[in-house]
């Protein structure tokens, strides 16, 4: 169990900078998710923590000890790879016990630890199989077992679920979360999937182009995205965002007036802004902004509507079923409490 601290981390590959001074403190026992589009530097950051990449500048500390110069094996971490990286010529038992064998631990201690981990992960019946004889989900669990057996200070996950099919991914998601609640080991988890981030994390660091855009608890990010990038990255279907200008306590956009609640600082008259509203906060109403339905996508519990306001397509999410069809005209009544305003130039929240 340990805290992890990144301070002013920079990384360049050759002359290309990929991380521009990342600082991030992860508390003991916390489940931290690094999320962002591919190429944002999240995996690089994780691999630097693992000791697989050199640190160009800055320092990384585990439990208060700077590990920059430490070899991977001396950092007391365990990592689960996207491809699982199981040793193909070893059985599940040997795979899981490999790190202990390298540490020259006693045979019965290895047995014991492997058995314990196998029990947690329901891998008992597969201990003598080879990785090629396992399904994707089982391999994934073996990779986790290999990490558990070591009882490390920090677990590192590098997109561990992206090779699984959708159904298995959901199952493994809760399994990993349950595991964390049981072991309480500090975890750093990298993913490009914001749903994974939202469902699993204690805190999320949203990364983009080598910087942390926002750090916070999942619902904080959802409710109060600090900037346009986070607003559009978090949430599915994504937030509707369009250009507008502040006028008389509301926003004029797409030829209509959109209600907004301004904090004391923001919202100068005439300021160019981006107006953002999540699909579920755009429910149809008896009066408001006129829109025309283009596509109706019933999903059972809710219905997704693609509508047009002017020439712009917006997504509307309504509870329950809808009797409306394409071509119908409806009215939208956005809730000002749930409207997000961002400065058009800087993209920052107003």
């Amino acid at each position: 169990m340990a805290s992890v601290s990144f301070s002013q981390i920079q990384k360049s590959f050759g002359k290309t900078p990929v991380l521009h001074g990342i600082s991030l403190d992860i508390a003991d026992g916390e489940f931290m998710v690094l999320v962002g589009p591919s190429g944002c530097g999240k995996s690089t950051l994780l691999r630097m923590l693992a000791g697989l990449e050199d640190i160009t500048a800055g320092s990384i500390a585990i439990d208060g000890r700077v590990v920059n110069e430490l070899d991977s094996k001396d950092r007391d971490i365990a990592m689960v790879f996207q491809s699982y990286a199981l040793y193909p010529h070893m059985t599940v038992r040997e795979n899981m016990g490999f790190s202990l064998r390298l540490r020259e631990e006693k045979r019965n201690l290895i047995e014991e630890r492997v058995a314990a981990a196998a029990k947690i992960l329901n891998l008992g019946p597969y201990l003598d199989r080879y990785p090629r004889e396992l399904s994707g989900g089982q391999r994934q669990r073996v990779a986790m077992g290999r990490a558990i057996v070591r009882d490390p200070k920090v677990f590192l996950f590098d997109e561990p679920l992206s090779n699984l099919d959708a159904k298995l991914r959901v199952a493994m998601r809760s399994e990993i979360k349950a595991l964390h609640q049981r072991l309480k080991t500090t975890t750093v988890y990298v993913t490009h999937d914001q749903v994974e981030a939202m469902t699993m994390a204690d805190r999320i660091a949203v990364m983009n182009e080598g910087r942390i855009e926002q750090l916070g608890r999942p619902l904080e990010l959802y409710d109060r995205p600090a900037n346009l990038f986070v607003a559009q990255f978090i949430g599915s279907p994504a937030m509707n965002v369009f250009d507008g200008a502040v006028k008389g306590g509301a926003v004029e956009a797409l030829g209509a007036r959109w209600p907004a609640s301004f904090s004391k600082s923001g919202g100068l008259e005439g300021q160019r802004v981006k107006y953002g509203v999540r699909p579920e906060h755009l429910e149809p109403a008896s009066s408001g902004i006129a829109a025309e339905i283009v596509v109706v996508e019933p999903m059972g519990a809710e219905t997704e509507l693609v509508v047009k306001v002017g020439d712009t397509s917006l997504i509307v999410m309504t509870r329950g079923r809808s009797t409306a069809g394409p071509g119908d005209r409806i009215f939208l009544a956005p809730d000002p409490a749930h409207a997000h305003l961002f400065d058009a130039a800087s993209g920052l929240r107003i």
């Binding site: 000791g51 790879f81 990286a85 290999r146």
Partner: peptide
């Protein structure tokens, strides 16, 4: 990744 896994495993 096999090499990386092995390095982390302490090889």
């Amino acid at each position: 990744e096999l090499d990386e896994a092995a390095r982390i495993d302490g090889a």
